[in-house]
Write a protein that binds this DNA or RNA. Structure first.
Lengths: 139, 139
DNA sequence: CTAAAACCTGACATGGATGTCAGAGGCAAG
DNA sequence: CTTGCCTCTGACATCCATGTCAGGTTTTAG
C-alpha cells in the first residue's frame, strides 16, 4: 500500500479496477465522461483515494440500471455537493430517473412472473407425460 | 380488416407494428432471428395472425429483461411446444434466465434504494438551508 | 542494472438492436 | 389509369460501453 505526500492511501488504476471489477479501460472512459476524477502523479499516472472505490461501484450501479453516461453526469453533482444550487435541477432529474427505474423494475417482475408461469406449465406437461392417464401420451 | 383464404383475420406488418409498438424494421429482424414466423401472400407480403400480437409483446418483454435474440430463440421452443423432448434443455435454460433476472431485479431495487437515500439526504440539506440554525446559510 | 509489470495516450474494432435510405413492386380509391 | 400508401429486399449508419492493439514511459522486484 502506498502513501501520498501527506500520508493518504494512494490507489492506482489497476488496483481500483481490481477492487471494483471494472476494467482499466472503463475507468479511463468514466474520467473522459466526467464521472470520475483523479489526481496525477508527477509522471502522469492517475491516483485515486479510497472514496473513489465506492464512487465507481455506484457509477456501475447506475449503468446497470440503464442510465447513460450523460444522465449519470447530470446526477453526480447532486451526490458530490448536496444542497448546492445546481443540485436542485439534478434532484428533479434524479426523481425522474428513480421513477423510470421503478417502472422498469415492475415490468421485469411481470416478466419474471410470466417465466414462472411458463415453467409451471411446462413442468405440468412433463408430469402428465410421466404419468399417462389411460391413453398413450401424444408424441 | 382483412380475411385470409379460410376466414382467419389477417394482420399485415404495419398493423402488427402499430399494435405492439414495435417498428416494422424490428419485426423483420425478429423473423430473421427466428423468433417470429409469418405466412406469405402470393406477392410475398407477410401475413400474421392474432396470436402473433401476443408473441411479439412477449418477445419485447424478454428483450427488455436483457435477453439476447439468441437466448430468446432458445426459450421459445419451450413456449411453442410445451413438453416436447427438446424443451427439456430449454426448460433448464429458462430457469437459468429466470434466476439471472431475479438477481438483476434485486440489484435494481438496491439501486433504487440508493437513489431514495440520496434524495432524502439532498432534501434534508435543502431543508437545513431554508431553516438556518444560527449561522447564515452558505451561498 | 535489468526485466517484468503497470501505466500512458490514441486509435480502431465490436456487438446488437434499431434507424434509414434506395429502388421496386403491390393494392385500394378516385 | 393514376395517385398514394404499404410492403419487399438489401445495404449502410448509429449509439455506446468496452475490448484490443501499438508504441512509449514509469514503477517495481530481483
Amino acid at each position: 500500500m502506498w502513501r501520498g505526500s501527506r500520508g493518504e492511501a494512494v490507489v492506482r488504476i489497476g488496483e481500483l479496477a481490481a477492487r471494483t471489477d471494472v476494467s482499466v479501460r472503463s475507468l479511463r472512459y468514466y474520467e473522459e465522461q466526467g464521472l470520475l476524477t483523479s489526481s496525477r502523479s508527477a509522471s502522469g499516472q492517475r491516483h485515486y483515494t479510497e472514496a473513489e472505490v465506492e464512487r465507481v461501484r455506484f457509477i456501475q450501479r447506475l449503468y446497470t440500471a440503464g442510465l447513460s453516461s450523460r444522465t449519470i453526469s447530470e446526477l453526480l453533482p447532486c451526490v458530490d455537493a448536496p444542497s448546492e444550487g445546481n443540485s436542485d435541477a439534478a434532484l428533479d432529474r434524479m426523481a425522474q430517473e428513480r421513477d423510470r427505474l421503478s417502472e422498469y423494475i415492475d415490468e421485469l417482475v411481470r416478466t419474471r412472473d410470466a417465466l414462472d408461469g411458463l415453467m409451471a406449465t411446462a413442468r405440468a406437461h412433463r408430469e402428465s407425460l410421466r404419468t399417462p392417464t389411460g391413453t398413450r401420451p401424444r408424441r
